[in-house]
Each structure stands twice: as structure tokens, then as C-alpha cells.
């Protein structure tokens, strides 16, 4: 177990660093690949002499003020989404579960659409109006879904999923109504719904990172519980797990992470569903490995998708949700196919 984790984790971190450098290099102004890490390391006081300044000031400005913060926010959003995707799939024991299963994204969308529709997006707390309202309505939705699913103090998984689906349908209709009522603001609501990382500076990274760090620690702490959960809820209880409490804590944690990510970036689909599956196909069913690698993989995946989103049709930006699905689905299909083949050759 530890060897697998070190091997894949080490490889993942290297891939992450490489991806960050390449993605920060690409843009309207190309920065030479090797200068990217040099510029970043130059900022650390005692490394200034090791990496002497050989680049124009503009490079430094572009990298540190625009590209790197965007890449970091992408990493955080991707990590949050796929980490909570892994948690949802584990705790609900449902391969179709993703961070949005319980309606958090729909709730957040209603809040955001409402604010945008009435043109209030810079009024309450400046640029934070949409994120704040989206976060609050997302959490409220989860609370409603749980209330709806509860039965004698327990939350049966099937009821929970059904409640989430019903809530998504209802709130989705509400968002559609707001979109159809507004003619001039249509693009802004739609664009928020499809997700984007443009204009997200360091402050957004600052807001997101505590959610990711605390969420990661909690989900990691419950990774063995997720393994046991795979045997079924009753067997998990027989092994000494407090099933209802574990469900509640993991669902809450995953939801908070999701709500934070969605309120910053809009609803980016597919990452939370596909990355954990991808990791599972690569490393097997052990959540002690799936959880950390999902966070890593989600971050990498999101940064690559965002770079494609902003560079393929530059200067037009493609909605991020479109890109994540476009590159994710075929790759996943390939992995599924390869997995089927190795299974056959084994038996």
C-alpha cells in the first residue's frame, strides 16, 4: 500500500510541477519553459542569487499576477471537486455519485443566477457577492436534501440520492426560468453555470485553500472507513464503524469543499465524477490511495483543461465545463476499454 502510494504520489507530484510550468508558459505572451520555475523561485529571498534575473519585467508581472494565481485556483478547484467526488462515491457506494449528486451545485446556481439576474453581483460585498450567495444557497440545499431523506434519525443512501435528484430537478427548473426571463444578462448566467477560472486572483486561492486542506485531512482520516463501507453498511457497523456519524461527517466535508469550489469557479462538471474513477482504474479500490491521488489528479486535470479553455480559441474562452467533458470522456472510455482487455487476458 505505502509503496504504491509513494510511487504514484511521487510521479503525480512531478507531473503536477511539469503541468504547472507548461500551462503557465502558454498564453498570448509565450514565456520560455525553463524561465517559469526560475521566475517563481527568484521570489524566494535566499534563492535570489541562485536564479539571477535574466528576463524582462513584463514576464514576471504576467506570471505572478495573472497566470500563476489562475493555475493555483485551478489546482485547488480541481482538487476540491475530485476529492469530494471520491468521498461521495465511497460513502454512497454508487459509481454515478459525484460532488453534485446531493444538489449542492443546483443550490449554488440558483443563488448565483438570482444575484446575476437582478444585477446585484457587485453590490453586497463587491466581487465576493456571487461566491458568497452561491456558497450559502449550496449549503442550504444540502440541509434541505438531508431533511427530506432522514428517516428515524438515519439517512438511507437510496433516499438520500433520490432526494438529491429531485432537488436538482426542481432547482434546475428555477435556474432555467431565470435564464429565460432575462434577455440581456443571459450570457452572464450561462457563463457562470458552465464554469470559468478567468480573472481569479490570489484572493480566491486564499479563500479556497483552507477548505481543501481541512477537507483533505478529514476525508483522509476516513479513508479506511470508506474501504470498510465498500463491504456494505451492515458489515461496516459490525467492524465497529459508527455508520450514520461517518456518513454525516464525510458528506458534510465533501459538500463544504464542493460549495467552496463551485462558488469560486461556477459549476464545472465531470471532474468530480471521472477523476476518482480514473484513479481507481489505475491503482485499485483502496481509498487510502484513491483519496490523495484524486486530489492530485483533479488538480492536474483542471489546470490542463483550463489552459486548453483559454488558449485553443484565444482570445475567446471556451467554458471550462465543456473542456473537462471533451477531453475526459474519450480518455475514460479508453481506460475502461484497456481495463476490460487486461481482465480478459488474466482469466
Amino acid at each position: 500500500m505505502k509503496r504504491t502510494l509513494l510511487l504514484w504520489g511521487g510521479g503525480g507530484v512531478l507531473l503536477l510541477l511539469f503541468t504547472v510550468c507548461v500551462c503557465a508558459m502558454i498564453g498570448s505572451v509565450q514565456i520560455p519553459l525553463l524561465q517559469v520555475p526560475a521566475i517563481v523561485l527568484h521570489q524566494i529571498p535566499w534563492l535570489q542569487d541562485v536564479f539571477p534575473k535574466t528576463w524582462p519585467n513584463s514576464y514576471e508581472q504576467i506570471l505572478l499576477k495573472v497566470r500563476i494565481p489562475r493555475v493555483v485556483v485551478g489546482l485547488l478547484v480541481g482538487a476540491c471537486l475530485s476529492l469530494s467526488g471520491a468521498a461521495f462515491q465511497g460513502i454512497l457506494r454508487n459509481p454515478l455519485a459525484d460532488p453534485y449528486t446531493l444538489g449542492v451545485s443546483s443550490g449554488a446556481s440558483v443563488g448565483a443566477a438570482f444575484i446575476i439576474y437582478f444585477g446585484l453581483q457587485y453590490s453586497i460585498v463587491g466581487q465576493w457577492s456571487v461566491p458568497l450567495v452561491a456558497f450559502v444557497t449550496g449549503i442550504l440545499t444540502l440541509w434541505l436534501v438531508i431533511r427530506l431523506a432522514q428517516e428515524d434519525g438515519k439517512i438511507p443512501t437510496e433516499r438520500l440520492i433520490l432526494s438529491g435528484v429531485v432537488m436538482q430537478a426542481f432547482l434546475g427548473a428555477f435556474v432555467s426560468l431565470l435564464i429565460s426571463l432575462s434577455d440581456k444578462t443571459i450570457n452572464e448566467i450561462m457563463f457562470w453555470l458552465m464554469g470559468s477560472l478567468s480573472m481569479r486572483g490570489w484572493s480566491y486561492a486564499g479563500v479556497l485553500s483552507p477548505y481543501l486542506i481541512i477537507g483533505f485531512v478529514i476525508v483522509m482520516g476516513y479513508s479506511r472507513s470508506l474501504n470498510i463501507m465498500a463491504l456494505g453498511e451492515r458489515q461496516a457497523a459490525h467492524l465497529g464503524m459508527n455508520v450514520e456519524r461517518t456518513k454525516m461527517i464525510v458528506l458534510m466535508t465533501a459538500t463544504l469543499m464542493t460549495a467552496a469550489a463551485v462558488s469560486v469557479s461556477g459549476v464545472i462538471g465531470f471532474v468530480g465524477l471521472i477523476v476518482p474513477h480514473l484513479i481507481r482504474l489505475l491503482v485499485g479500490p483502496d481509498y487510502r490511495i484513491i483519496v490523495p491521488l484524486s486530489a492530485l489528479g483533479g488538480g492536474i486535470y483542471m489546470v490542463i483543461a483550463d489552459t486548453l479553455a483559454r488558449s485553443v480559441l484565444a482570445p475567446t474562452e471556451i467554458p471550462l465545463g465543456v473542456v473537462t467533458a471533451f477531453i475526459g470522456a474519450p480518455f475514460f472510455a479508453y481506460l475502461l476499454h484497456r481495463n476490460k482487455k487486461t481482465r480478459r487476458s488474466r482469466s
Binding site: N227, L231, H238, G284, P285, D286
Partner: peptide, 13 residues
Amino acid sequence: AVLQQEGLPPLGY
């Protein structure tokens, strides 16, 4: 400890 009739599901562990 408890051992149930359905035993263990066929998982990848």
C-alpha cells in the same frame, strides 16, 4: 464479530 450469509461482495481488494 458477525459473519453474514452473503459474506463478502466481489470487490477488487
